[in-house]
Design a protein around this nucleic acid. Structure first.
Length: 525
RNA sequence: GCCCCGUUCGUCUAGGGGUCUAGGACGGCGCCCUUUCACGGCGUUAACACGGGUUCAAAUCCCGUACGGGGUACCA
């Protein structure tokens, strides 16, 4: 057995792999879409292949301006830019389906000519009627198929003259796939194995709509073939229509070069009730889009991972593990490591719930591991939004002190106002507990002691304070909390000595003096 | 309804007939570190949906049931 394995190594397509990510620009790109793009990217990189971006804008009614830019910006942010396609260029341009209309028209006609497709003149209204009549008769399973099409107005039933006449008269029509009778369509899904459908279950899908645009089914087959796509990696919601797609490859005579299919498990809501949808973000208080999206109505506007304060590397790592696992115990993977470790065979079959706690954990891990200067650069805009004016070096120092206790980028500036300006509010409850009538002279003596220190670095400061406590017979619990309250106003935050070093001697002493007076007032002295 | 896909700790998962008294991570809980909040360290909690087969042996293979999800548009 072992000797045959070499034939099945993942690199058998080395150099020839071509995959595509084909979103439709109907709004912001959902996080599930980002994961699909990521898996396509990883598969391409792993195998030295090409990652193509194609825009599937065949539904004119659902087109949303700005969506295409949003898609590109999202992929860019995640660091998984396509190597060919819309917005990038390449040998198979145009990559926007609305600009390839003539190609689909021509291919649809080819199918009509070879008997694989036919004209249908029924209006949507007529179909609605047919559907409700069938339902009234107890058939809730109406579909436009081999049985029902016999009663429809199609080029299969009408005379050639009649069809020509209707066409010439400019009557609206669609072109439908003529699903063959009594066959079993089988294909091998790289994730799920063999999947088959009986043609009696498949309806005669519309290929060309009456507005002259192709449906997804036609456009995706034609483009994947023309663009020489070798592997189709897409969401599980496409699995049921793959039977039609195989039929189309067959009808065109392209079966020999049909791509390999892989249907990814869906990303489910945190409560497991259905697939994650755009509204679930607001519902569960978490982002479900990579970047924020502003729409006309508030209901269609969403906050993104980026704006929540997530690092793209963390989002990518988190997403990669939602439905895939390398089989080792390593959890943290850079994009490069993911490219190296990725394989389709390791993608799981069942849907994965969106685990926001895990997403936060990943972010924390990346935040902690990031360099201070790198973080400072990313925090800069957030600091400026709060009108904090500090040098790069100072900001990096703040990051150094805060990153260990932050989950989001924004936490670094949200919980450290006292490092950028004066203390705004004091934790009076804790002050009342720690500030005694006899405290003031003690702490004033400590301030004088600190003032006299030659070095204001954390290490020497600790020595100095400890020396002071030993001399006065004070316990750390009597001194440190008050010091912290004086410097930060709160009981939370970085180490006291580190804070003093950052603030510097002058500001630190100043704060102590201000605080002592404040504390007296607080406890009513 | 019909068709398709799925089902291991609360969650993400490892596992591809014996090495499983089922491993890791998140979360929860506890302890240590620290007289701040965290980080970190250590420990703990908790799962093979059910029923039949096949086999000397099944979480792993087959069938059925239940449950979950997806699809069922001139949307993608």
């Amino acid at each position: 057995m072992a000797e045959f394995q070499s034939f099945f190594t993942p690199n058998k397509y080395m150099g020839n792999i071509r995959v595509r990510f084909a979103p439709s620009p109907t709004g912001a790109l959902h996080i599930g879409g980002v994961r699909t793009a990521l898996y396509n990217y990883l598969f391409a990189k792993k195998n030295g292949g090409t990652f193509v971006l194609r825009i599937e804008d065949t539904d004119q009614g659902r087109y949303v301006p700005g969506a295409e830019e949003y898609i590109l910006e999202s992929l860019q942010w995640c660091g998984i830019m396509p190597t060919e396609g819309q917005g990038i260029g390449g040998p198979h341009a145009p990559y926007r389906q609305s600009e390839r209309k003539a190609i689909y028209q021509q291919h649809a006609l080819e199918l009509v000519a070879n008997g694989s497709a036919y004209y249908a003149f029924d209006t949507p209204e007529e179909l609605d009627v047919a559907r409700s009549e069938a339902a009234a008769a107890g058939n809730h399973n109406f579909k436009y198929d081999i049985i029902s099409r016999q009663a429809m107005k199609t080029s299969l039933n009408l005379t050639a003259d009649e069809v020509q006449h209707r066409l010439a008269a400019g009557e609206h029509y669609v072109i439908r796939l003529k699903v063959p009778e009594n066959e079993v369509v089988t294909f091998t899904d790289l994730i799920r194995g063999e999947v088959s459908f009986h043609t009696s279950e498949l309806d005669d899908k519309v290929l060309m709509k009456s507005d002259g645009m192709p449906t997804y089914h036609l456009a995706n087959i034609v483009d994947d073939h023309l663009m020489e796509i070798t592997h189709v990696i897409r969401g599980e919601e496409w699995l049921p229509s793959t039977g039609h797609h195989v039929l189309l490859y067959r009808a065109f005579g392209w079966e020999a070069t049909m791509p390999q299919f892989s249907h990814l498990p869906l990303i489910l809501r945190p409560d497991g009730k259905g697939k994650l949808s755009k509204r679930d973000g607001a519902k569960f208080g978490m982002p479900v889009f990579p970047l924020s999206w502003k729409a006309e109505v508030a209901e269609d506007s969403f906050e993104g991972f980026r704006e929540y304060g997530f690092l793209p590397q963390a989002v990518v790592n988190f997403l990669a593990f939602l439905g895939w696992n390398p089989g080792t115990e390593q959890e943290i993977f850079s994009l490069e490591e993911l490219c190296e470790a990725f394989s389709i065979e390791k993608i799981s079959k069942s849907g994965a719930r969106f685990d926001y706690d895990k997403a936060k954990w990943y972010n924390q891990q990346y935040l902690h591991a990031a360099s201070d200067s790198d973080l400072a650069a990313q925090v800069r805009p957030l600091a400026e939004a709060k009108s904090y004016q500090v040098s790069d070096e100072y900001l990096a120092q703040v990051c150094h002190l805060m990153k260990g206790r932050s989950t989001f980028l924004s936490d670094i500036v949200e919980q450290s106002s006292y490092l950028f300006g004066e203390v705004q509010t004091y934790d009076n409850e804790n002050i009342a507990k720690r500030w005694k009538p006899e405290s003031r002279p003690v702490f004033e003596a400590l301030a004088i002691h600190l003032q006299a220190q030659p070095s204001f670095e954390a290490g020497p400061l600790e020595e100095a304070v400890k020396g002071f406590m030993a001399e006065k017979g004070l316990k750390p619990g009597e001194v440190m909390p008050v010091l912290r309250l004086s410097l930060a106003g709160t009981m939370q935050g970085p180490g006291v000595y580190e804070m003093m070093e950052l603030l510097g001697k002058e500001r630190s002493i100043e704060r102590l003096k201000t605080a002592f007076g404040q504390f007296d007032k607080t406890v009513g002295l």
